[in-house]
């Protein structure tokens, strides 16, 4: 299984499941960074996305909107999205705003990757 880590692996280097780290605060600036990373990974051929919220303390309104946009793009490409390690407080917010109806939630990055196992094991031509 190959894993694409934000900032550590250049886009285009392949990998079936991309893991993108949300950082400690998802606002406009970091939201746009996450969006860019996700779109680049999808462009590069990734077939599923994991967004890791480990350590994320706050997601503001703009952050929510940007995440909704990322989910929509992934949906259109048939790429499932899993949110991993989301804090309890943020899970509640995502539930309230309907994001949890659109993505799967996983307790950890490993659990998220396990959920997406079938995507990782499907050859994608690389």
């Amino acid at each position: 299984m190959s894993k694409t880590l934000t900032g550590s692996t250049p886009p285009g280097s392949g990998g079936e499941v991309a893991v993108v780290y949300a950082g400690d605060y998802v606002n406009k600036l970091s939201g746009q960074r996450i969006e860019r990373e996700c779109l680049l990974r999808l462009e590069a051929g990734c077939r599923a996305l994991v967004i890791n919220f480990r350590g994320t303390e706050l997601v503001n309104s703009i952050g929510v909107s940007i995440l909704l946009g990322v989910i929509e793009v992934a949906e259109r490409r048939g790429a499932p999205v899993v949110f991993a390690s989301v804090s309890r407080h943020t899970v509640k917010l995502f539930e309230l705003l309907g994001l949890t109806r659109l993505v799967a939630m996983a307790d950890s990055e490993e659990a998220a990757l396990a959920t997406l196992g079938e995507f990782a094991s499907t050859p994608n031509g690389h």
Partner: peptide
């Protein structure tokens, strides 16, 4: 617009 969409969870 982002703020409005994110405030209500609208796509």
């Amino acid at each position: 617009l982002h703020v409005v969409l994110g405030a209500l969870g609208v796509r």
